[in-house]
Simulated scan of single mutants.
Amino acid sequence: MKFTKLLTGAALALGLAGTAIAEEKTKVGFVFVGPVGDGGWTYEHNQGRLAIEKEFGDKVETVYVESVAEGPDSERVMTQMALKGADLIFTTSFGYMDPTINVAKKFPNVKFEHATGYKTAPNVSTYSARFYEGRAVQGHIAGKMTKSNVIGYIGSVPIPEVIRGINSAYIHAKKVNPDVEFKIVWVFEWFNPAKEADAAKVLIEQGADVILQHTDSTAPLAAAEEAGNVIGFGQASDMAEYKDGPRVSSIIDNWSPYYIDRTRAVMDGTWESVQTWDGIGPGMVGIGEITDKVPADVKEEALALKDAIASGEHHPFTGPINKQDGSVWLKEGETADDGTLLGMNFYVEGIEGDIPQ
Rank of each mutant, 00 (worst) to 15 (best):
S168T: 09
L88M: 10
G281A: 13
T4R: 11
V180W: 11
R247K: 13
P246K: 10
Y347G: 10
G281T: 07
S128W: 08
E289W: 00
A336R: 04
G288W: 05
D209L: 12
E75A: 15
D238T: 02
F182L: 06
E301S: 12
K5F: 11
K174I: 05
V180D: 13
S327V: 03
H214R: 02
A227N: 08
D292Q: 07
F107L: 08
T92V: 06
P108R: 00
K106H: 07
P158I: 06
F346N: 02
G34S: 13
M344H: 11
G37T: 11
H314E: 14
G40C: 12
T91G: 01
V202F: 08
H45Q: 05
K175L: 12
G319Y: 06
E53L: 11
D278T: 10
A199D: 03
K243L: 07
P246Y: 04
R247N: 10
G245R: 01
Y64M: 12
N177I: 07
L16W: 09
A236M: 13
I251K: 00
I287V: 12
F191N: 15
K84V: 00
M284Y: 08
N192E: 15
A142Q: 07
P158G: 07
E75G: 15
K293E: 05
F182C: 03
D268R: 05
E61S: 13
E225Q: 15
A69Y: 02
T340Y: 12
E23Q: 13
G319T: 08
K54G: 05
V137M: 09
L330N: 02
Q206Y: 08
E313C: 06
L88G: 07
K111A: 14
V294N: 06
T291P: 11
T146N: 03
W277M: 03
G40F: 13
A82R: 05
A197L: 01
T79A: 11
N109P: 00
G269R: 10
R164M: 10
I280L: 11
A200K: 02
M97P: 00
V176Q: 10
G245A: 02
V68K: 09
K119M: 12
Y242C: 09
P178F: 08
W41K: 04
G15D: 02
V187D: 05
G319M: 10
L12Q: 04
G350F: 06
